[in-house]
Computed example of a mutant assay.
Amino acid sequence: MRKNFEIPRNHKDIGLRSLAVMFKDEFIPFTGLNLPKVKDVIETNVPIIEVKDRGMDLNFLLEDGTIAHIEFESDTLKENDLTRFAHYDLQLYEQRKQKIRRIIIFSSGVSHTTLKQLDIGSVKQQHDCIFLEHDFNGDETFSKIKGKIIQGQTFTNREKLEILLLPMMKTTQSNSSKRAYELTKTLEKYPQKEIAHYLIGAMVAVNYSQIKEPEKAKILEVLEMAKPFEDLYKKFELKGRQEGKREVALKLLIKGMDKETIAEITGLSEQEINELIPQKKSL
């Protein structure tokens, strides 16, 4: 008897790690906030005794040495949400001693939140809010994605990020669950099947709690016919990390560092570093 395909239990963590690793250069520009560029992705599992079985969604180390702490929310903020975020930030600050910028991204259905800060006297919290309900047009984005597939064009990294967040965006033609299924059926027509299945899996993982039946079961049937999502995730995460190493190595080459030291720092082979030399000369 065939076992039904299931998204791994840590589905949201897998999807968010995918966002962090694969789209670290696109994520902050996507929000529209005027922040420094992302320098690196940092650990989200800070030890918190008071808040069990919860973890921070995304953390990016920015070029100015601050940390962008990203949280995704599907409802308006309550005081216990800000209390939980405060626990996260204080623990992270204790570990790294770096200032933290908090950004909260609200999915469709949330157009505002009245609780924008929490002042308990000794600590005053503040954050930026991004509302996918009115800041991003899901119908236009979906139409653009369909058009690129029809024309046989490849997706940019920005467009791949939009695909993962599309079910959270505002739509007048559908709802989050139906949009996720429509997107799945559309991506099945994408010629690069491995990328298509990876995007479907990551999209479902990020939006798992928002996608309802019967659409969820239909999407999982599609993934059941593909290579298991977690295997695909690992492959693309490895690719993302490798590309990050190459970026670091190229910058060190430009600064004149010798290849042996670069290899020691990045873990790249001498041959891989030699392949970067033509890029150095063209810059």
Rank of each mutant, 00 (worst) to 15 (best):
R2D: 15
E6I: 12
I7M: 13
R9T: 07
I14F: 03
V21N: 06
F30D: 02
F30K: 10
K37A: 08
D40H: 12
P47H: 09
I48F: 09
L61Q: 10
L62F: 05
E63N: 15
G65M: 12
T66H: 04
I67L: 11
I67P: 07
H69S: 08
H69D: 03
I70T: 01
E71C: 01
E73I: 03
S74M: 05
A86S: 10
H87T: 03
D89Q: 13
K97S: 10
K97I: 06
K99Q: 14
R102T: 11
I105E: 02
S107I: 01
S107H: 03
H112Y: 15
L118I: 09
I120N: 03
I120S: 13
Q126N: 12
Q126I: 15
H127R: 10
C129V: 05
H134D: 14
N137K: 09
E140S: 14
K146C: 13
G152M: 09
Q153I: 02
R158T: 00
E162K: 08
L166R: 05
T172W: 10
E188R: 10
K193Q: 12
A196W: 01
H197F: 14
Q210V: 11
V222Y: 00
K227R: 14
L232S: 10
Y233L: 04
Q242T: 11
R246W: 13
E247I: 12
L253S: 07
K255G: 00
K255C: 08
M257G: 00
K259V: 10
E260P: 05
I262V: 12
I262E: 04
I262K: 11
G267D: 02
I273R: 05
N274R: 14
K281I: 02
K281D: 00
K281T: 01
S282K: 13
L283K: 07
L283D: 00
